Simulated assay, not measured.
Amino acid sequence: MTVNVLFAARKAAWESYEAPLRAALKAAGVKARLSVDLPAEEVDYIVYAPNSDLQDFAPFTRAKAVLNLWAGVEGIVKNPTLTQPLARMVDEEGLTQGMVEWVTGHVLRHHLGMDAHIVNPDHDWIEQAPPLARDRVVTILGLGTLGSACAEMLVRLGFQVRGWSRSGRKVENVACFRGQDGLEAALGGADIVVLLLPDTPATENVMSAHALSLIKRGGVIINPGRGPLIDDAALLSALDSGQVGHATLDVFRIEPLPRDHPYWAHPRVTVTPHIASETRTDSAARVIAENIRRGEAGEPFLHLVDRAAGY
């Protein structure tokens, strides 16, 4: 039996994904009609990017699932016409590995104090070795697939790793916390804080002025998660006062970050243009194909979104 798969994303994404998806579906044993243009009433699965022109899911009465190409679902989860099961992208081969590498690199950058040697216009001879990883506390807010993988890597490097999640997840050799009291405990005295929470009403401005006051003075904020996790005014104030020594930010409330935004010119801010990690077409195509195979076999879908929680 042939299943009809609608690819609903921008043209550039189709050009990148068409061949990998066809190959992945074939390898999964799924006979599929894959197209960017199918009658709504014939569609069995929608492969979807939230920046697609498709915003009304009501006509897709036969669709068994919407399979998101992105890890983030905040741009789709609240759509009232979306009644089909929604799966987010969890790509451990590509997306997760890329995030682990980016987070580990920037944690080590700040831990080792590399900036002082990379940018040293006065040629200062700074004979001061950094402490060992075991003497640093790194707190990760968000212990989903990405946060847990980053935590595990940092543990292997010897850091004291704390983790906080709303659901109270556990990661081996990580001091895990939950709830408001747990958040304060996780942040208290942290040298480096990594933000990998989803964007939901409950996580907006989680890094408030109060939260920023809890970390070790001169500590570092690293945000490859979502822009709204940070109260921007509070962070700028904490940077100016020295409470936060540096912020490395990959995501923002408005993207691209406006050229006149204070982050660009601030000497204690590093801006990276939402490149911490991305979905890799080959591995993501295999994730999509596996979910379609599962749907046709009557097996549970992977990575289903909890609509109430928002992720």
Rank of each mutant, 00 (worst) to 15 (best):
G144H: 05
K78A: 14
G94W: 06
V138W: 06
K78T: 12
W164A: 05
D44H: 11
V103K: 12
H111S: 15
L67C: 08
L67Y: 03
L143W: 10
A63R: 07
G158Q: 13
P121F: 03
L95Y: 13
H123I: 05
N79A: 02
M89D: 03
Q84H: 13
L108H: 03
A58K: 06
T104E: 09
M114L: 15
R166M: 12
P80F: 03
Y45P: 04
L132I: 06
M99R: 09
Q97K: 13
E93A: 15
M114Y: 11
W70Y: 06
A63W: 05
F159P: 00
L132N: 06
M153C: 14
G113Q: 10
Q84P: 00
T83G: 07
E74A: 00
V90Y: 05
L112S: 14
A129R: 07
D44C: 09
K170W: 04
S148L: 02
N51W: 10
A129D: 08
C150A: 10
H111N: 07
L146I: 11
L54M: 04
I76K: 01
F57S: 01
V43Y: 06
G144I: 09
V119I: 13
Q55T: 05
K78W: 03
A71P: 00
S52Y: 04
D56N: 11
H111A: 15
E127T: 11
A49Y: 12
T83H: 12
W102A: 12
A129M: 12
A149K: 03
A71L: 06
P131G: 11
D53R: 14
L154I: 11
A63T: 15
H117T: 06
E92L: 15
Q84T: 02
S167A: 15
V107S: 01
M153P: 00
N68M: 13
P131V: 12
Q55I: 02
R134L: 08
F57I: 03
G163F: 04
A71T: 10
D115S: 13
W125C: 08
R134A: 13
N51T: 14
W164C: 02
V119C: 09
V77P: 01
A49C: 08
G147S: 05
A133E: 13
R162K: 10
W70P: 02
K170I: 09
A63P: 00
V90D: 05
L154M: 12
I118E: 14
D91W: 08
V155A: 13
G105M: 10
L54K: 05
